[in-house]
Design a protein around this nucleic acid. Sequence first.
DNA 1: GTTGAAAAACGCGGAGT
DNA 2: ACTCCGCGTTTTTCAAC
Lengths: 159, 159
Amino acid sequence: MNAAISLDTIDRRLLELVQEDATTPLAQLAEAVGLSSTPCWRRLQRLKEAGVITRQVALVDAERVNVGVTVIVSVRTAVHTEEWFERFRATCEAIPEVVEFYRMSGDVDYLLRVVVPDIKAYDAVYKRLIAGTNLHDVSSSFAMEQLKYTTALPLKYAL
Amino acid sequence: MNAAISLDTIDRRLLELVQEDATTPLAQLAEAVGLSSTPCWRRLQRLKEAGVITRQVALVDAERVNVGVTVIVSVRTAVHTEEWFERFRATCEAIPEVVEFYRMSGDVDYLLRVVVPDIKAYDAVYKRLIAGTNLHDVSSSFAMEQLKYTTALPLKYAL
DNA sequence: GTTGAAAAACGCGGAGT
DNA sequence: ACTCCGCGTTTTTCAAC
């Protein structure tokens, strides 16, 4: 279900293109990869069915919707039970300001990326995070500038 | 150019929908927000022209293209010149495995998110990062699990 | 803002090489 | 597996309200 899949050169080029712009007309994609539209369409279909392409979304400018501040939150926990984890996971899942959430190796247990309009709003999210879940240590770092952000994954490693 | 913009309830609802699924037919979006398709189309057009919706992309499953490992890289620098920064920025920009890149406040100067197939591949990226740019301290943490990742920004703060 | 409708573009699939 | 071609749908634009 979630194994790597076999992709040839054309598949990769198609993925590169749609990762950058999913509105590109099929005919144009087809031309770019040197195919006619039908096989190109079938390939895209196959990539969707295989779960390589998961979905197609509109990206929104963070500044224009007033969430220009991103905060990186490092969390260390005292408790390490399954029950605590599930609770924390559910909390993060429910907070829309938490846009990324990783379980880490090393000294930090969890890492979050949170987007908010300002420090005051972050404080509200912070309170929501620690409410209910017993966090041992929470360290928040503010990003001054987003220098790069892309949803396009490198395809050179694809099998 | 990058100021927050005025969005009413319908605009927000539309953005919520297209942030989740940009393939939704216009007629269906229109119905969901209680509008007919013409004004709905005009609103989406306006949101694109205003730069609120920046683009429409296909999201790819990281596991299936063999970049299931994400590494968080904290960078401290010895040099703090404009020239050094530009060089480092260009390096990160050019490395497709670097999918996010922030300038931070606090003890860490820069934070990167890197996606790779395995530790060995990360080492290659690491070498590319430190080559040419004189990094004082680089600390890499591996994510064991991606518990949440969304491109959908919270819209409750939009003005 | 609405409806309706028409033009153009595009997705989708069949038939054939 | 691909090309060619056409049907059906959807987008996009245009009226008039």
